[in-house]
């Protein structure tokens, strides 16, 4: 098995290892917080991170928990591959609204106006020094990710956190996989696409 584990989040419903948690109350941020709290992970930085980063931190968290798919892997060889359409648009809109309405640029709101900040947050959370890249695409496409997966393998990554995260306004959605690259082949791309399609 190359896809070791997977998670999915869809506007309040978080699924990991076949267990589903659903919270339909509140706005997108409150639902995301409820899903995170259900994991009972003590990491206050989660709540200070931007929305895309929180979505990625939540989606990847079960992989690194005790007995998680990547818990025993060397963090130096765990790569990151994020694909998204809206990227940092939620953060962009918040920063832009303050700049437009108050004439003030907030450094705290400016920094997360890059989608790859989410990779930075994930790398900090789990001590991942390895390779990683963020690809912008209109919809999750496993075949479009194939060259990047190959690149991460070329650069010595043995496992990757790989998936789709998208959030803007009231919408937040993700589908992530923990993948072992040693046994990975393009023939597994349909399994990754199925994960995207299911969620």
């Amino acid at each position: 098995m190359s896809i070791l584990a997977s998670t999915a989040y869809h506007d309040g419903a978080f699924t990991s290892a076949g267990v589903r948690f659903a919270c339909v109350d509140g706005d997108a941020d409150q639902r995301l917080a409820a899903a995170w709290n259900q994991l009972r992970i003590d990491y206050p930085r989660f709540h200070r991170a931007d929305r895309l980063s929180r979505l990625l931190l939540l989606s990847a968290a079960p992989f690194f928990e005790a007995n998680g798919a990547l818990a025993a892997c060397d963090p130096e060889t765990i790569g990151m591959l994020l694909c998204t359409c809206t990227g940092s648009m939620e953060s962009d809109a918040r920063y832009q609204a303050l700049l437009r309405d108050e004439g003030v640029a907030s450094p705290a709101l400016f920094v997360p106006t890059l989608p790859s900040i989410a990779l930075g947050e994930l790398s900090i959370r789990h001590g991942l020094h390895g390779s990683g890249v963020c690809l912008m695409m209109p919809a999750p496409s496993a075949s479009a990710l194939a060259p990047a997966i190959g690149m991460l393998k070329q650069q010595g990554m043995r496992h990757i956190v790989c998936g789709w995260a998208d959030t803007f306004a009231s919408h937040a959605r993700s589908a992530f996989a923990a993948i072992a690259l040693e046994t990975w082949a393009d023939t597994h791309l349909n399994q990754l696409q199925s994960l995207f399609d299911e969620h």
Binding site: P115, S116, C134, L135, S141, P147, G150, M151, Q154
Partner: peptide
């Protein structure tokens, strides 16, 4: 489909690496 790389100020260099890697593969 094009690959659109957004990796902060390393985007251009990362895109170059990805393109060369795709050909190597």
């Amino acid at each position: 489909q094009p690959l659109v790389v957004s990796l902060a100020c390393a985007s251009g260099t990362a895109a170059f690496i990805l393109a060369c890697s795709a050909i190597e593969q």
